[in-house]
Design a protein around this nucleic acid. Structure first.
Length: 576
RNA sequence: GGUCCCGUAGCUCAGCUGGAUAGAGCAACAGCCUUCUAAGCUGUGGGUCACGCGUUCGAAUCGCGUCGGGAUCACCA
């Protein structure tokens, strides 16, 4: 049980005993005591004044006194204004530490029995991935891990947008202007080559708008299954998939199931009929089908064009239905930019109107755009930050920083490369994941992503320090363990307190779909450790029992850091 | 115009289910490496939490309004 909950329940007991009144649990607000006051946890007594009918100070005294007298875990208390600061006994912290250290799956929550599908990435196959996609991918991958840690079964999926006019544009430009160029012949990554085609088409269109007609003819040919068009489409798509695969691999991203839009874009049409039958949809005289959401404060939404073809929303309705049925999902999370907030609002509403009770279990993990100092990224102005370039740049930065320090001088080259990747990627992932997904974030290409301060490498470095001590300890034949009769120092208790909050953080992160909560937790933990490290020698400690306990403490610390950072997709090196 | 989101230190961000004197990092300045990794630690300066009103014992946090920024409201995806 978490310490906060424990104290709250004891305080409730105290109020019942002292004042003879049962007060709801939620009236007991317990939070970690602020640094400037003495104590471990603080109970806010204001909500209890109505029951105590006493001044805040007196109420705090009453409860504090009861706790000290009746709970062995509570060693002392003090009251400041309306705040009751409670100190837990040294024994409590040692026991708390023991139970964490014993629990190999500490931080993994009990199974919820729920199966969750999470869709993310969902790229277009007409241009390479950029920084915006990177945020999407990292969020999706991280939230997947967080949901797993919170006890859910998770199915990671992506829907590749591999058909449509925009794809034909690339194909058309390639035919006309690229003289049979291939990734092999140009040495270019496939997604970048196709991206070049797309850019080229924009030029062609500017020179002669009539090319658009050709492209639309091409789309019709594609839909009719014209072998030549399909062949070209398949070839170019494969180039892009191969390119994406490389980028995904570099980022450490994978999926359990990949959907392709050319296989799903016709889904949802039967649902339209169902909606018409049940009267939640209406057909206009021209044959188009709509869902009227004006009563819900939204607009009329088109579901079928007058020519009978479906739109994006139709497909999404059908896909959702199919997935919930096929996989027996309990819920579905979509990682999609906040520009589509309206779309998902409508999606949920329409599904609810169609009578699907799982509609309420659809969550849109809406994240903010990544912006540059001069505003949004625009491919036309060449301000798009390319994912592959960025990953490479981070690697180079990590390499430069590392070589400057010279700490890896005796490490084999192959291992060095691995570490540079790990650190560069750690910096990038942390930089993106530490900010609240809901908020838009700023990226300045001119300033390199930092390796100092609240960053991924800072946390990686912290772990490298711990591992270094552990290596030396093992060389000296020293073992970690907690023996009776040893207590934690004040700083060590603080570390134990932060460690013990980890499961709760995982739960919070899962509830809010927020890797940022985990990132900030890791930073707090690492920062606290570095302060401890600075003024507490570990290997030089003369008392063998104390030394042993310190090793156990930093061992658990390293474990938790590794687990928590793994939820962000960031690995921690043994040395750096 | 309707709907929704955002506005916290020079910059990037925490804190937002109401709680104590609003926190970090970067940047600036000043210290700390014969002692477990200085990618670290310590300190200094830096704030009208956009603004106003309200609810409350208590508001950065909740409500209303104003200003500023953004998204969206396609027979696009």
């Amino acid at each position: 049980m978490g310490a906060e909950i424990f104290i709250a329940s004891k305080a409730r007991e105290a109020v019942k005993e002292v004042y003879g009144v049962e007060v709801p649990q939620d009236q007991f607000q317990v939070s970690p005591t602020r640094k400037e006051f003495e104590g471990d946890f603080t109970l806010v007594v204001f909500p209890l004044l109505r029951v105590s009918r006493k001044a805040p100070e007196a109420t705090g005294e009453d409860i504090g006194k009861y706790l000290v007298e009746n709970c062995p875990e509570v060693s002392s208390y003090n009251v400041v204004k309306g705040f009751l600061n409670i100190c837990l006994s040294p024994v409590y912290w040692v026991e708390s530490f023991r139970s964490m250290a014993r629990n190999a799956s500490f931080g993994t929550l009990p199974s919820t029995g729920r199966r969750v599908m999470i869709e993310f990435s969902s790229p277009n196959t007409n241009k390479p991935l950029h920084l915006g996609h990177v945020r999407n991918n990292l969020l999706g991958a991280s939230v997947s891990e967080i949901l797993k840690a919170a006890g859910n079964e998770v199915i990671k999926t992506t829907l590749v947008n591999d058909r449509g006019v925009h794809i034909c544009k690339s194909m058309y430009a390639w035919q006309k202007r690229f003289d049979g160029a291939t990734p092999e012949s140009t040495g270019k990554k496939g997604d970048h080559l196709v991206g070049d085609c797309y850019v080229e088409f924009a030029k062609m269109e500017k020179e002669n708008p009539a090319v658009l007609d050709d492209v639309h003819r091409m789309l019709v040919d594609w839909e009719n299954g014209d072998p030549a068009v399909r062949g070209l489409w398949q070839m170019m798509n494969q180039w892009v998939f191969d390119g994406f695969e490389q980028t995904y691999k570099a980022l450490g991203i994978s999926f359990d199931k990949t959907y392709y839009e050319h296989e799903t874009y016709l889904l949802g049409k039967e649902l339209v009929q169902k909606g018409l039958d049940s009267g939640v949809f209406v057909k206009d005289p021209d044959g188009s089908v709509w869902c009227d959401l004006t009563a819900d404060g939204l607009d009329r939404k088109l579901l079928l064009r007058s020519d009978g073809t479906s739109v994006y929303m139709t497909q999404d309705l059908g896909t959702a239905e199919k997935r919930f049925a096929e996989y027996k999902l309990d819920s579905h999370v979509y990682v999609v930019g906040d520009e589509q907030n309206y779309h998902f609002q409508v999606l949920k509403l329409v599904l609810a109107k169609l009578g699907f009770d799982w509609a309420s279990q659809i969550f849109h993990l809406s994240y903010g755009m990544v912006e540059l100092p001069e505003g949004k990224m625009k491919s036309r102005e060449g301000t798009v930050v390319d994912a592959d370039d960025l990953i490479e740049k981070m690697y180079q930065e990590a390499k430069a920083t590392s070589e400057e320090s010279g700490k890896l001088a005796d490490v084999p080259d192959e291992e060095k490369e691995c570490l540079y990747r790990m650190i560069g990627l750690g910096a990038l992932k942390y930089f993106i994941l530490k900010v609240d997904p809901k908020k838009k974030m700023l990226f300045n290409p001119k300033e390199s992503i930092d390796f100092n301060g609240n960053t991924g490498p800072f946390i990686q470095y912290t772990n490298a320090r711990i591992r270094s001590i552990m290596r030396k300890a093992s060389e000296q034949g020293l073992a970690a363990g907690v023996e009776d009769g040893v207590e934690f120092s004040e700083k060590e208790q603080r570390l134990v307190k932060i460690l013990s909050a980890y499961p709760q953080k995982v739960q919070e992160a899962a509830d809010n779909f927020s890797p940022a909560l985990i990132a900030n937790y890791c930073y707090d933990l690492a920062k606290e450790f570095n302060q401890y490290y600075h003024d507490t020698p570990i290997l030089k400690e003369p008392d063998a029992k104390v030394l042993s306990m310190r090793l156990a403490l930093i061992g658990l610390l390293s474990d938790v850091l590794c687990k928590a950072m793994a939820l962000l997709g960031i690995q921690l090196p043994e040395r750096m």
